[in-house]
Design a binder for these strands. Structure first.
Lengths: 329, 329
DNA sequence: ATGAAAGCGCTAACAT
DNA sequence: ATGTTAGCGCTTTCAT
């Protein structure tokens, strides 16, 4: 049995009322210094820990945020989560983390869990196949603040924090143009994802203004797929530049480049959009546009706190991105 | 205001008692089919979600596990966490994740949080500088099951699940011997960590029986440090084999190897102890002994569940490891 | 088959 | 300065 110290227990031992104990522990001005001291001392000795459930039941404020994400171990998310957790701790919130395993049904179940746990707010990144955002609407209806991050639904009634996909892709494309490259292989992710669409259209736009550049686009749905698609391209012709829209794609592409024994940057230049870790693993280090999960986390938390206190939060906010030069050009 | 449906509300609408509603929703045998149907229908229509706090307060069973880890985003932990979370979901538990940022004070604060939230159990990986495990003892005293993983205290009164460090290092060493290598560079982590000590002594032992092999040992405390230490060694002499005791070390070492333009496996062979992701990033893929965070998570959860239902749990359990051959020999 | 009532631990309005 | 009381939403024992 847990040796649970409660206010009642303390009050009985000291032969005072429960409310006096409660107030004393909260440093309420009404309570005499003597009483406060007595109570605090006993509470410490008995290792009193307030029962979070009783408090939540009473105050209807759980001080817990829910976070729903396809997969914690996925490259990008763990830096985001780490960042959010850090802020939560600083602000006396806890974080209930739930994985949807990229399955919309699990995602719904997780939303339900958040509701059952009366979380103070939810951070969510939708699965790649989430078609029905009904469950998220219910959160809104229940007045639970909701901040979407990274993969977000189109609906404008939600708050979202995003990587500046358009700007990031443009930055990379402009860098390629500026370096006077002529033969570019652009490797992108799953066509159905909005993130892919945004990055691709922005990327293409820059090249549309530069007709002299030959641009080949390929799509891959996984690390392995990126390897194969890239290898197939390299077997046809060697471009002077490879662009990878994500870390996942970069890893696959680099495997192909290394297998073909292409030298970077002599034979081919490489640039990626990345969270910032993978590009540093290669020799030479890969030039990338940083899409920081850490920064995104900070921004998401800020918006969440605004939302919690009832401030209006801008519908869609972007994390600025920046070019980090390696030696791959 | 949240449109909170409660048992009371339902009971009032249907003009029956709260307990009947409660029972009907739990499919209690005493309740008539008619009533059950009426109640269930209304509950669905009103989107009734049981209030987890009221239940916990009443039943004293939060169905939440706490997980305390130095840093979520660290290579190894996120696969472990992902694995534990998966099991939690399957078993109707939730997971409260807390980072200690490798700071013993934050660690204590996190343990307190777990107690306040009346978690049903705690998974913990201690910080590298945790000297005082007082706070963990208090969890025990409060009858909260506690499973240590990966970095564990020496104390034998705790349940621990660990990577089989000794076996893993031995497996790698034996592989090197079997491949008739003669000049080995062994790169290890921070000397003060027990994980380093275990892996190192086991590794050395194998070579002690093979006097003909020249073994050089170096220690590094970070990815960058591993790079520098490895480069320094390579500048002195090129070994025929490099052993890396972790992913972190491997990344640093590979950077040095690539900068020196050494060809694997022609110029040098490489083997590592790894979670299993990093070795696949290189060309050729690196041979490694798998120390699986995923498996460790499964094992930890199993022990936790045993512990929760009051079964005695073995004090220290190891996850088996296995050699995965790449093409680096 | 259903209801009444107590109580989990806490807070806060309302006494005194 | 301290006590009394009601109630948050739920479960469960004990009636009926």
């Amino acid at each position: 049995m847990s040796n649970n110290t409660t206010l009642k227990k303390i009050s009985q031992i000291l032969d005072i009322s429960i409310s006096t104990v409660s107030r004393a522990l909260k440093d309420h001005p009404d309570i005499s210094a003597k009483t406060k001291q007595k109570v605090t001392e006993l509470a410490n000795a008995l290792e009193y820990e307030p029962n979070a459930y009783a408090i939540n039941l009473r105050t209807n404020n759980s001080k817990i945020f829910g976070l729903i994400v396809p997969d914690i171990s996925y490259y990008f998310y763990n830096t985001f989560i780490s960042s959010v957790e850090e802020e939560c701790r600083k602000n006396n919130y806890s974080l209930l983390i739930l994985q949807s395993g990229d399955n919309p049904e699990t995602e719904s179940a997780n939303i339900k869990l958040c509701r059952q746990n009366r979380v103070s707010g939810v951070f969510a990144c939708i699965t790649s196949s989430t078609a029905n955002i009904e469950a998220f609407y219910k959160l809104k209806e229940a007045d639970i603040p909701l901040i979407f991050f990274d993969k977000v639904p189109a609906d404008n009634s939600f708050s979202k924090v995003c990587i500046a996909d358009t700007e990031a892709a443009r930055l990379a494309a402009e860098f390629i143009v500026q370096k006077q490259k002529k033969n570019v292989l652009g490797l992108f992710g799953n066509t159905s994802l909005s993130i892919t669409q945004k990055r691709l259209s922005s990327f293409k736009e820059v090249f549309a203004e530069n007709a002299a550049i030959n641009l080949v686009i390929a799509h891959a749905i996984s690390f392995d797929d990126a390897y194969e698609k890239c290898l197939a391209c390299l077997n046809t012709h060697i471009p002077d530049t490879i662009f990878c829209m994500s870390d996942e794609i970069l890893i696959g592409a680099m495997r192909a480049v290394q297998e073909k024994r292409l030298h970077i940057p002599k034979d081919v230049s490489v640039i990626a959009l990345s969270n910032g870790f993978m590009p540093l693993l290669y020799v030479p280090q890969i030039t990338y546009v940083e899409t920081s999960g850490y920064q995104l986390g900070k921004l998401a938390f800020k918006n969440m706190m605004d939302s919690v206190v009832g401030n209006t939060v801008e519908s869609e906010v972007f994390v600025p991105c920046r070019l980090v030069e390696g030696a791959s050009f």
